[in-house]
Design a binder for these strands. Sequence first.
RNA 1: GUGGCUGUAGCUCAGUUGGUUUAGAGCGCUACUUUGUGGAAGUAGAAGUCGGGCGUUCGAAUCGCCUCAGCCACC
Length: 343
Amino acid sequence: MKFPKFPVFFPDATRGLIKSLDTSDIESTKTNGILVNTYHLYKDLGMEFIKKKGGIKKFMNWQGFVISDSGGFQVGSLIKMNPTKGHVSNNGVLFKPGGEGQVMLTPEKSIAFQMELGSDMVVVLDDFTDPKATYKEAKESMERTINWARRGKREYEKICKEKHLSKEKRPYILGVVQGGFHQDLRKYCIEELIKIGFDGLGYGGWPINDDKSFDYESAKTIADNSPKDYLLYGLGVGKPDEIVRLFKMGYTIFDCVLPTRDARHGRAYIYDKKTVYKFLDLTKGKMKDDDNPIDPTCDCLTCTRYSRSYINHLFKTGDFTAGRLVTIHNLRFYSNLMEKLRG
RNA sequence: GUGGCUGUAGCUCAGUUGGUUUAGAGCGCUACUUUGUGGAAGUAGAAGUCGGGCGUUCGAAUCGCCUCAGCCACC
């Protein structure tokens, strides 16, 4: 399936679920796609099981779009933060070496698994550039990313041929740009990825600077140096205002854990004309007796049925229905933001 | 009525041979942080006439006496 309209925001259903929601809940938020993760699903379920289930959409009974992340980000979030959790070599990534649940991901295996998942967009395995990396280290991870991209693309072509997938039936394939804060590395990476040939490029790495500000410079480098017909994907982006800004640069695909994670911690998003959004913290004492819905202008299930007061009570009680209700609202906030951006 | 136990932050409690001139903790509360998911954590902050009174002492949450409140036991 090809994405019919842009921009799109796909919340993270890492293990094949949006935490606390089922797929009918997701549909009710007018969210038209989700992101699943290769590393987690490969580790939990394996290639053969997914094949037997006929792919992730059938397994989940999800009619919408699916993007599968390659597992490349886990190189950074799991291994580079804690080197005992895995090892990166030119061949690929070994997670939990020697331990229970040891998983080896190569660029080929990552793509092959994503094709079995039945994703609408597959992502090549990339080597995350650590934000604290030296120039030399950043260059190495960037070059490895290019090498892996080449291998991933080759595997993709091979599988498409084996499965006789026409141009229309093939999923999109995304290359990931690494290089950290070094713009010359970013540019070089983009040039090489374009030579390999992709449907789009992803803004990879860690987009947050030490002072908590978003690294728009790298995002702009990618946007300015990509072919016009390439899709631009802000991987893991982001806050509503960051999405708006990247959309203006040309980015049209986004995913992020924030709306769902914030929801589970009681923070609801409310639209604000000046700042794009603001938070409403439903766990706070001042919500205890507030009979208003989270957002009176919102048409989601939560806002049409429940008061801030009641949701505050659910949080205090500790039941996860609270997380579900706020997740539903936050996803509707994001889908609504996409509708606004489409104009 | 007699005896005993308890009384310290919004809540649950630490804190005795009297002694860091600003009495602690957990939870709660307030403000921030979290970005290709660990249903969590972290940072900072506000908050107490130590039930009340009198006394002993250089110095009392801590010792003495009186008093108030709650609980328990026995007449």
